[in-house]
Simulated assay, not measured.
Amino acid sequence: MAEGYIEYQFKVEPLQPAVDILIAELGDAGFESFVETEAGVSAYIQKKEWHDGILDDTQILKSDEFEISYTSEAIEQTNWNVEWEKNFNAIVVDDMCSVRAPFHEKPNTKYDIIIEPKMSFGTGHHETTHMMIQHILKADLQDKSVLDMGCGTGVLAILAEMRGAKPIDAIDYDNWCYLNSLENVERNNCEHITVLEGDAQLLCGKNYDVIIANINRNILLQDLAVYAKALNSEGSLFLSGFYNEDIASIEAECERLGLKRSATLERNKWVALKFKN
């Protein structure tokens, strides 16, 4: 079990583009969950991943263009639901897919996903999750085998099943995300999703028609060869978790692996790309 998280509350002036840059750099440093606030952003990192110099390579903190201050404190798993209910509003993507908590009213959408993400990443609020939902809504997933890599809350795997995909693997290395995905899969009455705890090593010998990976640039570049090997002929690979300035390095590695970009979504400088085998 995870032993809790460290919460950093950043106050940022001016907010943009500083908040987006800060989230990207904190993601590279190991922070895995973010809640944007009126004053800036709250960021969360597992206690076991934290160390004294965790912010040393966060370059925006040294910039003269922005004023950024922060405080930090330990936050236990049992406290997260309180924070969650204070910060989470239901969202609707393209008038087709809603992502909400059980205490929200049911909207009139074709796909209604109910999650309680606790500390897990993937509420649909962040640009990357929002765009991945858009990609899934456009994709033909009927009877396609799907991998949701770095599944977080399991929201993308759940939507994939609602869109007709089966079977589906949802994988995350974080125990908290693994347990949260199990809860959300059950909550949404999914029958074709297998939730696994681990990393890309679990893909050995597996093959999929569609692979979804919303992680971060460094992990994607590290594991793209594994994804390419696991992707069936004529398969689709959806990638997000990085900025538009990272497209060149991501695309170069994909092209080296025989994958061609076929679609691009951009939202507040974040991007979500589709590649074809």
Rank of each mutant, 00 (worst) to 15 (best):
A228V: 03
S236A: 06
A252L: 13
F242P: 09
C254F: 02
R217N: 10
I211V: 14
A200G: 12
G164Q: 07
G235I: 06
A213K: 02
L239Q: 02
S233F: 08
D199T: 13
L196G: 00
S236F: 00
W176M: 10
E251S: 10
S233L: 11
K229C: 05
A200L: 00
E197D: 01
V226H: 09
E191I: 09
N218Q: 14
D223L: 03
E255F: 01
N184M: 09
N188D: 12
A252R: 12
L224R: 03
F238I: 12
S236I: 08
G164L: 07
V195G: 03
N232A: 13
A228K: 11
S240E: 05
T194W: 01
C177L: 05
G198S: 06
V195C: 10
I250C: 09
G164T: 08
C177T: 13
Y173C: 13
A165Q: 07
A248C: 06
I168C: 06
I168G: 06
L224G: 03
R217V: 12
Q201K: 14
Q222G: 01
C177G: 08
P167I: 08
I247C: 10
G241S: 09
L239F: 06
N216D: 12
R187D: 07
E186W: 00
S181M: 01
H192L: 08
N216R: 10
S236L: 11
V185G: 04
Y208A: 11
S236P: 00
R217A: 09
H192F: 13
E255P: 00
C204K: 15
L220N: 02
